[in-house]
Design a protein around this nucleic acid. Structure first.
Lengths: 142, 142
DNA sequence: CCCCAAATCTTGTCAGTGACAAGTTAGTGT
DNA sequence: ACACTAACTTGTCACTGACAAGATTTGGGG
């Protein structure tokens, strides 16, 4: 295969990364769905996916690299977001703050994953990101 | 000035970005220090910095782009981390979990900022990131 | 079975990026 | 005034992403 062959299938670099993002979000939604509704389990799955598929994860959250409005990307992302929303039900707040709780859950989980991937977290957390994440996520649950 | 002139001062691209990261972390530490020890205020300053200096922020948390062990970068990052640690004291947990609380505070604040910058958050949060962040951070404080 | 159109691939080239090299100019110290 | 260092300039190279022109393969219809 030659250097220009992929262009026929994907159009250009952003077209290729659109497929990568769609695929990534699909695998991501599957991983989160398999984890169940508990924040600790869903959060663990989130961190595990981010670390084990850092190539996908790195593209997924950089929409300037791809066509974020692509129908397959949108569908897969919606599905992941729905699973994420369900995982926040274990955060103990009154019903009026359910949305805030969902965003808090997403933020803490995504934040931990992003900080781990960028190497910003203290080295003494060890080398198991999921084990390191669990007590941190538990602070939100109590 | 010609295309090769900066090379004399910075060495190469990663050298230039090392200076950008050091400068960014210094401004960042200043912004967080000015916000005080309350998680909501410190968190608001974190989100505000990330959004208003997205160029700096984008480089700071991608250590593969620069010399992360550069002494000026390390010093500025240590200073920012110390300020961050103090900002977590308003998370209500027993003393044995203080470290987890610090990491939870950092994760939720960084996660919200990162999600905002990548455009992943729901559009109905409006266009004021700090106003959108505060009720989310409050979930961690109670 | 043949022909045509579409799909896919190949080769070549271009502009831009990041780096390196060689030489020139400016600044500083003795 | 001279010599050395710092800073800059110009040129070139390899690589990347894109585009173009043509060749080859595949599939469908007559």
């Amino acid at each position: 295969m030659s250097h220009a062959a992929p262009a026929h299938h994907f159009g250009d670099k952003s077209g290729l990364l659109t497929v990568v993002a769609a695929e990534g979000y699909t695998l991501f939604a599957d991983a989160l769905a398999a984890a169940g509704d508990d924040l600790l389990e869903m959060g663990s799955a989130y961190v595990r996916f981010a670390v084990e598929h850092r190539g996908y994860f790195g593209v997924m959250f950089r929409p300037e690299l791809y066509h974020a409005d692509d129908s397959e990307v949108s569908a897969a992302r919606e599905r992941a977001n729905m699973v994420l929303a369900k995982g926040a039900t274990t955060v103990p707040v009154d019903a009026s703050r359910a949305r805030d709780a969902q965003l808090a859950a997403w933020s803490i989980v995504h934040g931990f994953a992003a900080l781990w991937l960028s190497g910003a977290l203290p080295a003494d957390l060890g080398d198991d990101p999921v084990a390191a994440a669990r007590p941190v996520l538990r602070v939100l649950v109590r």
